[in-house]
Amino acid sequence: MMIRKKLAVLMLAGVTCLASGCGNVVKDGTEALGEGRYDAAETAFEEATKNENKEVAADGYQGLGMTYYEQKEYDKALEAFQTALDQGAEQTQELYNLTAVCAMKTEDYAKALECFQAGIALAESKTGDDKTKADTALLQEMEYNVIVCYEKQADWENAKSAMKQYQADFPEDDSVSKEAEFLQTR
């Protein structure tokens, strides 16, 4: 996912936070993150995590996760994103996807599957005007990564099943044909 998309998600959380009265902490962290000033972003978001308002704290943890993610500190990012979810952060496809990607990077494929599946369930619950091209692209990315997670766990039957689902959902994607052939040999 491109940095602008990730920042848009974080900025939306910041707007929510500002509307709920958390002040400028999340906004400052978001601006610092966008400018690549990771130390300043981390400081601002850490301050937000200490707020008594659970929404503000959740936004702070989400911001910390983004900061760590951008620095490729996936174990810290995974912990921060999970804490954000535990603190009541808005459950979004994007947050579940980022959490799952971090889990994959730390080779926790069971956790990654859990998060991808939660994100997929959210995506599938959207209908009509609620669904956008970005939602569809993210759904496609998550469904593909489910296949990868099963493969990494050598769970060939579930990988084959996930591949069939992927091909049914995205028949125009020919790029997975070699992967599908590989799975048939397992």
Rank of each mutant, 00 (worst) to 15 (best):
2 M>D: 15
32 A>V: 00
41 A>P: 07
27 K>S: 09
111 K>Q: 13
153 Q>G: 01
164 K>V: 04
137 A>Y: 07
36 G>F: 11
87 Q>F: 06
100 A>D: 06
135 D>F: 00
115 C>K: 02
168 A>P: 10
16 T>M: 14
176 V>L: 00
173 D>V: 00
68 Y>C: 13
174 D>M: 00
146 V>K: 04
89 A>C: 08
16 T>H: 10
34 G>D: 00
124 E>D: 03
162 A>F: 08
92 T>I: 06
83 T>N: 07
51 N>H: 13
178 K>L: 12
90 E>C: 12
136 T>V: 09
14 G>N: 03
140 Q>H: 13
175 S>D: 10
125 S>G: 13
95 L>C: 06
151 E>R: 12
24 N>W: 00
62 Q>Y: 14
105 K>N: 14
38 Y>E: 12
67 T>D: 02
35 E>R: 10
180 A>M: 00
91 Q>Y: 03
47 E>W: 12
49 T>K: 01
171 P>I: 02
172 E>M: 05
86 D>V: 15
87 Q>N: 13
12 L>E: 03
117 Q>L: 03
84 A>N: 08
79 E>H: 06
92 T>E: 05
66 M>C: 14
167 Q>R: 03
74 Y>I: 06
27 K>I: 15
170 F>Y: 07
176 V>Y: 07
97 N>D: 08
158 N>V: 11
80 A>H: 03
25 V>A: 11
90 E>K: 04
82 Q>N: 13
134 A>P: 09
59 D>A: 15
5 K>C: 01
57 A>S: 15
126 K>V: 14
141 E>I: 01
144 Y>M: 01
90 E>W: 05
12 L>K: 08
15 V>G: 05
73 E>D: 14
24 N>Y: 10
74 Y>K: 13
121 A>N: 12
56 V>W: 14
133 K>C: 02
106 T>C: 13
120 I>K: 03
170 F>P: 01
25 V>K: 06
164 K>C: 08
124 E>R: 15
59 D>I: 13
116 F>L: 09
54 K>T: 15
160 K>D: 09
100 A>S: 07
139 L>R: 08
48 A>Q: 04
133 K>W: 05
56 V>D: 10
74 Y>F: 15
52 E>M: 13
10 L>V: 12
3 I>H: 07
142 M>F: 04
145 N>E: 00
91 Q>E: 14
115 C>N: 15
124 E>P: 04
129 D>W: 14
138 L>R: 04
165 Q>L: 13
89 A>R: 01
54 K>F: 10
151 E>A: 10
168 A>V: 14
176 V>G: 06
138 L>A: 04
52 E>Q: 15
3 I>G: 07
122 L>K: 09
155 D>K: 12
139 L>A: 08
148 V>Y: 03
55 E>C: 11
14 G>T: 09
36 G>Y: 15
65 G>Q: 06
63 G>Y: 08
82 Q>H: 11
119 G>S: 03
97 N>H: 12
123 A>K: 06
10 L>G: 02
91 Q>G: 02
104 M>L: 10
11 M>A: 14
184 Q>L: 04
99 T>A: 02
85 L>C: 05
113 L>T: 02
118 A>V: 11
128 G>P: 05
36 G>I: 09
24 N>I: 12
177 S>F: 00
96 Y>E: 01
30 T>G: 10
112 A>P: 01
8 A>C: 09
55 E>M: 12
